[in-house]
Design a protein around this nucleic acid. Structure first.
Length: 580
DNA sequence: GCCGTTTTCGGCCCGACTGTTTTCAGTCG
């Protein structure tokens, strides 16, 4: 059983216990355990079978035993018992905005309501107000919430790249204002999460009202509420924006608070309480002295708590607080640590720019090398690059490289299709002429896990393949990853010295942060690339770097932090095996 | 149910907002 599946069972059990009226801390304990299981970088099943599940923070004796029961029977008996007591739809009701376990339980007890549909009808027929604590307003808001999300499937999350485009525009506009002293994006956009629910902006100003007024005047917003301390707005395409403005003395406290994540802040405060410190957006209250320490910078917030500064990308309660206390945070990958980009396209396949145009843009970005990796013969959309066309393409790339001088290297590469049986659609003789080969899957996504894994491992083991492009094929919020046994994939990549890509296309970010962290733990070396289809999207490598940072990846884990003459020998299986 | 520089019991993050209340429980981020 995968970690995610085990975690889902404990999340469900937490929901059911909560409906059953268990004390809140017990419910929280189950949720914490579920999160620890989900985030664990190794197989929890293996850990549990070795009797070591309690090594996970938040898993004690009781939950460790329940994991073993779950692995034996495939179900948790406690959950089964509670599912006889409550209709399955009742948990769905707790997800409706404004509803939680207490209110869901109340409508079930009083009116026998156990599904969203039954709740909707009761609200329409004005029967909800018969329940103590519910009134006409409650009926209205239930109907509004159900109308906004009829089947409970709306996730309402927006891709990071869209959110950052809007958020950065707002920040830039506010920064221009004379009253503005500091302004930053906060929230999940600052943490570079895959998707965001809204945009949080934090500012410090000499004249707070004036800055709020400037925010109200931005043409891209419909402002829904405003005061001296901030404003709330919605962009014309429906993205909610929150602005908070404080005096500069507490800017650090507010930025830290609103950057989150929720679990990071909760854990931060829990640990602080043990030292007699209470953290909020207004400062750090010291029990002993009775004073509140206001922090102008985030650095100060963390320092007051005995921690080193935690980069926003790590603030997910995945071990960063313990590492920050021990001063052992990773030396995270940075965009400027990358010397080259090893995945991009030109008009030879489905790109928008010439070889010359891409090379010039890469140089402009300060890179030392760029691999041109157009799609191979059987790609099936855009232009196909036949073997003869590839030979001419290689010659052209070499000629352009010659013309560029010694401080920049243009590499002749290809993004070669992996066919359903794991073979490649150029023959070895042609592949040998290339400097750099990425193998990617672009078709036949629906094979079984066994077939898909065999296919991938065969590509990884091909001696002329340097890297696997977007290894799981997922598209954020749109397409699930291929069915793959990633433990096998990572083992094969580590053994053969084939690199796995962290693709920077903001729709892909593949490997994901979770999988990239597992990959480096398994000894895999990564490449972080833009997969640019035009000069402007070379900047997408920033999303790849953000993904890698969220995976605790350091420069040493990434092949293209090296010069090309250092990287080149790394990718030969014999020498890699010797290094390992 | 978990956990320990207040260790094996007694706590468990912090503050804002909302709607239904007459002092606050429940929900949210």
């Amino acid at each position: 059983m995968r970690n995610a599946d085990i975690a889902a069972h404990f999340s469900e059990l937490a929901d059911l216990y909560e409906l059953d009226g268990a004390i809140v801390h017990r419910v929280v304990a189950y949720r914490n355990a579920a999160a620890a299981i989900r985030e664990a970088p190794r197989s929890v099943e293996e850990l549990a079978r070795a009797g070591r599940a309690t090594e996970l923070a938040g898993v004690g004796k009781t939950i460790a035993e329940k994991i073993e029961t779950l692995l034996e029977r495939g179900r948790l008996p406690q959950a089964e018992r509670l599912l006889e007591k409550f209709p399955a739809g009742l948990v769905e009701i707790t997800r409706i905005p404004g509803f939680g376990p207490k209110r869901a339980r109340k409508v079930f007890d009083e009116l026998g309501i156990g599904t969203r549909e039954e709740l909707r009808r009761a609200a329409e027929e004005q029967r909800l107000r018969e329940v103590p604590g519910f009134g006409a307003r409650a009926e209205e808001s239930v109907l509004a919430a159900l109308a906004a999300d009829p089947d409970g499937s709306a996730r309402g999350r927006v891709l990071l790249s869209r959110v950052r485009a809007i958020g950065e525009e707002i920040v830039a506009a506010l920064r221009e204002h004379p009253a503005c002293q500091r302004v930053e994006l906060a929230g999940s956009a600052r943490r570079m999460a895959e998707t965001c629910k809204d945009v949080d902006v934090v500012a410090a100003a000499t004249d707070r009202a004036a800055l709020v007024e400037a925010f109200r005047a931005l043409a891209l917003l419909e402002v829904t509420s405003a005061s001296e301390s901030g404003a709330r707005a919605v962009t014309h395409n429906g993205l909610p924006i929150d602005l908070r403005v404080v005096a500069p003395e507490t800017f650090g406290n507010l930025l830290q608070h609103l950057t989150g994540s929720g679990p990071h802040n909760e854990a931060l405060r829990t640990q602080a309480v043990r030292r007699g410190l209470h953290v909020s957006e207004y400062g750090v209250l010291d029990d002993e002295r009775g004073t509140t320490h206001a922090c102008a910078t985030e650095d100060e917030v963390y320092r007051v708590l005995g921690l080193v500064y935690v980069p926003p990308e790590l603030r997910e309660n995945r071990g960063e607080l313990e590492a920050a206390r021990a001063r052992e945070l990773p030396d995270l990958l940075r965009v400027d640590s990358l010397r080259g980009d090893l995945h991009c396209h030109t008009i030879a396949s489905d790109g928008r720019a010439s070889v010359e145009g891409m090379a010039a843009a890469a140089r402009e970005r300060g890179l030392d090398y760029l691999a041109i990796t157009d799609h191979s013969a059987s790609h099936g959309f855009g232009k196909d690059v036949s073997p003869d066309a590839l030979r001419r393409h290689i010659e052209h790339i070499r000629a352009v490289d010659e013309s560029l001088g010694d401080d920049f290297r243009l590499l002749a590469g290809s993004e070669v299709n992996v066919l359903p049986d794991g073979s490649l659609d150029y023959d070895d003789e042609l592949l040998t002429e290339l400097d750099w080969v990425i193998a990617s899957l672009h078709s036949s996504f629906r094979l079984s896990e066994q077939e898909m894994t065999d296919r991938m491992v065969r590509a990884i083991e091909h001696p002329l393949v340097d890297a696997i492009g977007h290894p799981t094929g997922r598209l954020i919020e749109r397409r699930d990853p291929y069915a793959l046994d990633l433990d096998h994939v990572f083992e094969a990549a580590a053994r053969s010295g084939t690199f796995l890509e962290v693709n920077g296309n903001p729709n892909r970010r593949d490997l994901s942060e979770r999988n990239a962290r597992r990959a480096i733990a398994a000894g895999v070396t990564l490449v972080v690339d833009s997969d640019a289809h035009g000069p402007e999207t070379l900047a997408n490598v920033g999303y790849g770097v953000a993904t890698a940072r969220r995976a605790w990846v350091e420069g040493r884990h990434v092949a293209n932090t090296r010069r090309w003459d250092e990287l080149d020998p790394l990718r030969r299986p014999s020498s890699t095996a010797a290094d390992a």
